[in-house]
Amino acid sequence: MDETGKELVLALYDYQEKSPREVTMKKGDILTLLNSTNKDSWKVEVKITVNGKTYERQGFVPAAYVKKL
């Protein structure tokens, strides 16, 4: 869990989004878990840094590609 009590997951593999509802992640990324009720895909939040500014983006990733921490 992070400092706000949200559950975290670790990306086990790289994943490139295939639709606007998904998010891209790299192996080793730590993501905030938002919903894990679907056995196939979990909703997560990723933090992306562009030019020194951090943005948050929500979307789905394959459940088999992440592990709860």
Rank of each mutant, 00 (worst) to 15 (best):
Phe60Gln: 02
Ile48Thr: 08
Thr24Gly: 08
Gly59Leu: 06
Thr49Asn: 09
Thr49Phe: 11
Val44His: 00
Lys39Phe: 07
Val44Trp: 02
Ala63Val: 06
Glu45Gly: 12
Pro62Ile: 08
Val46Ile: 15
Glu7Val: 14
Thr24Gln: 04
Leu33Met: 02
Met25Leu: 10
Val61Trp: 01
Gly28Glu: 02
Tyr55Val: 14
Glu7Leu: 11
Glu22Trp: 05
Asn38Glu: 09
Glu56Thr: 15
Lys39Leu: 09
Thr49Arg: 09
Val9Ser: 00
Gly52Leu: 03
Asp14Ala: 05
Lys68Asn: 05
Ser36Cys: 14
Ile30Trp: 05
Lys18Ile: 06
Val46Arg: 08
Met1Ser: 12
Val46Thr: 10
Glu22Tyr: 06
Val66Ser: 00
Asn51His: 08
Lys18Phe: 04
Ser41Asp: 07
Leu33Lys: 01
Met1Phe: 12
Leu8Thr: 07
Tyr65Gly: 07
Val44Thr: 00
Glu45Arg: 10
Asp40Lys: 11
Lys26Cys: 12
Arg21Cys: 15
Phe60Asn: 05
Leu69Thr: 03
Ser41Val: 14
Leu31Ser: 01
Val50Cys: 11
Val23Leu: 11
Gly5Asn: 11
Glu17Asp: 03
Lys6Leu: 12
Tyr55Ile: 14
Val9Leu: 11
Val61Phe: 02
Lys47Val: 12
Lys6Pro: 13
Thr32Phe: 09
Thr32Pro: 11
Pro62Leu: 07
Val46His: 08
Val61Gln: 00
Ser19Cys: 10
Leu31Trp: 03
Asn38Leu: 09
Ala64His: 11
Leu10Arg: 08
Leu12Ser: 01
Leu8Gln: 09
Leu12Thr: 03
Ile48Tyr: 13
Gly28Ala: 02
Leu10His: 03
Thr49Ala: 07
Arg21Asp: 15
Glu7Thr: 13
Thr24Ala: 05
Lys53Met: 13
Glu17Ile: 05
Asp14Asn: 07
Leu34Pro: 00
Leu69Trp: 06
Lys26Tyr: 09
Trp42Ala: 01
Gly5Val: 13
Val46Cys: 09
Thr54Tyr: 08
Ser36Lys: 07
Leu31Arg: 01
Leu34Trp: 02
Lys47Glu: 07
Glu45Lys: 11
Trp42Asn: 00
Tyr55Trp: 10
Tyr65Pro: 03
Glu22Ser: 06
Asp2Tyr: 12
Tyr65Val: 09
Met1Ile: 12
Lys39Arg: 11
Tyr55Gln: 09
Met1Pro: 13
Lys27Leu: 04
Thr4Asn: 13
Glu22Leu: 03
Glu22Gly: 15
Lys67Asn: 04
Lys6Thr: 12
Lys68Val: 12
Val50Arg: 09
Lys26Met: 08
Thr24Asp: 03
Thr24Val: 02
Lys67Leu: 10
Gly28Pro: 00
Pro62Trp: 06
Ile30Gln: 02
Gly28Cys: 09
Pro62Val: 07
Asp14His: 04
Thr37Ile: 08
Leu31Pro: 00
Lys6Arg: 14
Thr4Trp: 11
Glu22His: 04
Lys53Cys: 12
Val9Cys: 12
Val23Trp: 03
Leu8Phe: 15
Leu69Asp: 01
Lys47Ala: 08
Gln58Glu: 09
Gln16Met: 12
Lys47Ile: 13
Thr37Lys: 10
Val9Ala: 08
Asn51Val: 03
Val61Asp: 02
Lys47Thr: 14
Lys26Ser: 07
Arg57Glu: 03
Asp29Phe: 08
Lys43His: 10
Lys53Gly: 07
Thr49Trp: 09
Lys26Val: 07
Leu8Pro: 03
Val23Gln: 01
Ala11Tyr: 04
Glu45Leu: 15
Thr32Met: 10
Asp40Ser: 08
Leu34Ala: 01
Lys53Asp: 09
Asp14Lys: 02
Gly5Ile: 13
Thr4Lys: 12
